[in-house]
Design a protein around this nucleic acid. Structure first.
Lengths: 118, 118
DNA sequence: CGTTAAGGTAACCTTTTAGTGACTACGTTA
DNA sequence: TAACGTAGTCACTAAAAGGTTACCTTAACG
């Protein structure tokens, strides 16, 4: 039963308020510029976008391509290595979809209001 | 490519500093009392243990069985529904294990020191 | 000479999470 | 009568995560 002992390290690279949104954008759209990501994720600000992208880059999930020109141009995309996440994301997504239904059945449609936090 | 859009909701129920540890204990050991969990996870405190267990219970992942006796006895276990998480946890674990090796290869063994955060 | 463009960074502030220590209930044992 | 044991809660503090605003760079455009 000790076969799950490393799942925390996978979780680590996925947590962060905006990482799911960023990954979704890059998976859906392929190569995107900084500004495009910013427009696609309306409530994010530059600092957070930069920060989350840097973390994903550090984990080798996204690739950052800098064009040395003025004004600057920087492109982001899912790296080859990062594409290996798709299995995990799929598993999470499938379970998550089912779980939302399960929660609806238990508590009714308004899930977010009934969660105990803090 | 929109097949990943719900993975965030799965992530939500897994995040929390102590949830991986708690799930691991309950998966490995089956039924456990509050005090046993506390001993098994040395650095957790009662408040956090209670809180994280309550969240897992709310999401129907763990079952809480109260015995009406003095001193109190409360047992926790993974619910039948919660066992459905195993596929996800396995996927996360497998990827996480590989990712740790990948990071070692990129940055050397001392991963934790080289992560950019904040 | 002033403005715009893109992709940031630095200093600072707010909100959310996590952690601490004291306290409670109540039947049993010493 | 006092202390023990279990499973908590409460009020409070500390730390981490997230957010805001101002500012930087440098070429080109008017």
């Amino acid at each position: 039963m000790k076969e799950y002992c490393k799942f925390e390290s996978a979780l680590d690279i996925l947590v962060g308020k905006w990482k799911p949104a960023i990954l979704l954008q890059l998976i859906s759209n392929g190569i995107m510029r900084f500004g495009e990501l910013q427009k696609a994720i309306p409530d994010i600000n530059k600092k957070m976008l930069t920060q989350q992208l840097r973390e994903l880059e550090h984990n080798n999930i996204v690739h950052r391509e800098v064009y040395n020109q003025i004004p600057p141009k920087v492109e982001y995309s899912i790296s080859e290595y990062g594409k290996g996440l798709s299995t995990v994301l799929k598993a999470l997504n499938d379970w998550g979809t089912a779980h939302m239904k399960h929660m609806d059945a238990l508590y009714g449609v308004d899930r977010s209001e009934s969660e105990p936090k803090g």
